[in-house]
Design a protein around this nucleic acid. Structure first.
Lengths: 160, 160
DNA sequence: TTTAATTACGTGTACATACATCTATTTTTT
DNA sequence: AAAAAATAGATGTATGTACACGTAATTAAA
């Protein structure tokens, strides 16, 4: 009985070799950070095969969401999960790989408009398939629990 | 009523300007990633005042946990939340700031042993105080909800 | 309308991640 | 004991983050 409880509780503790937490809130913070790293890692492993990084994939995904419309750099940036991402630099690498095209906007010459190419759409589709499969096999949480998790994460950030 | 529900549900959606998620599991993934970024950002804002980065703070915290014992680089590395952290390089910066000391182990000359200095302990204590205060004011989740959150996050990672 | 403020975004720097490789040790094998 | 394997950690490279600053273009103010 004790052993069983111990085994269940050891997951985060094992991962970061630490058992002393001030309280559940502090533990939850570390748990969120560790789980984010774990998820990112899971996805990156799949993307490696396609020569993409997590952030390059995100930019492609955002562009696909508006396709066939173009998007300016600012619009992409404010949809990024890590809100301080340096989008121009990520786009540099996608341009080199010909997965997106960059052009100056005609309406506002300050703006750079980005379009996903057919090659970009194609690599996005195959990599998304690989990630989805990986998720089904590796992320073990039910829809009901995920809904609960979503509401708890919103509570964490409620004050700001 | 509709407006109220909408406002509550918009938190992640607003942050990343996206409302289309395949399912709750996919949304929860993005929510974990976004919340991790949000928490890291919160802490980094406080640490900036002390000239520390999030990772430098983590290394100091780990060293303090063993103080007055020394730790080798490997022991520190396996306790890091981001398990691919390049610890030697983080230690470089802490050594420059005289917050830790580096020496070759006498028992095993391959090992580098790291010790936190008094200056390191001192900066760790004041920055921890600042972070704790920030948490009390910004992270709005109860101990009970945090416990639930911890168990759901463990469920996410259960399969591996 | 001329100046001032704002905006979009490229770019430089410091730090970190992810990963491969190199060197110096130590341990294991033969 | 000598050779091979394993280990610790430093270091190089590509990429990303965080943030400051510069430049060009647009909008607002005087």
């Amino acid at each position: 009985m004790y052993v069983h409880t111990f085994a269940l509780l050891m997951k985060l503790e094992q991962a970061i070799q630490s058992t002393k937490f001030k309280n559940e809130v502090q533990k939850a913070s570390l748990n969120v950070l560790y789980t984010a790293w774990w998820l990112k890692n899971l996805v990156s492993q799949e993307l490696k095969e396609f020569g993409l990084t997590h952030e390059q994939y995100n930019v492609l995904r955002i562009l696909k969401g508006k396709y066939p419309d173009q998007m300016c750099v600012r619009d992409i940036a404010c949809r990024m999960i890590e809100q301080n991402s340096n989008v121009p630099r990520i786009i540099d690498r996608l341009v080199i790989k010909k997965l997106v095209k960059r052009a100056t906007s005609l309406e506002d010459k300050r703006e750079t408009v980005i379009t996903i190419t057919q090659a970009g759409i194609s690599i996005l589709e195959s990599s998304t398939l690989a990630i989805d499969t990986k998720y089904v096999n590796s992320v073990s949480i039910t829809e009901t629990d995920a809904t609960m998790l979503n509401s708890l994460l919103e509570k964490v950030r409620e004050k700001e």
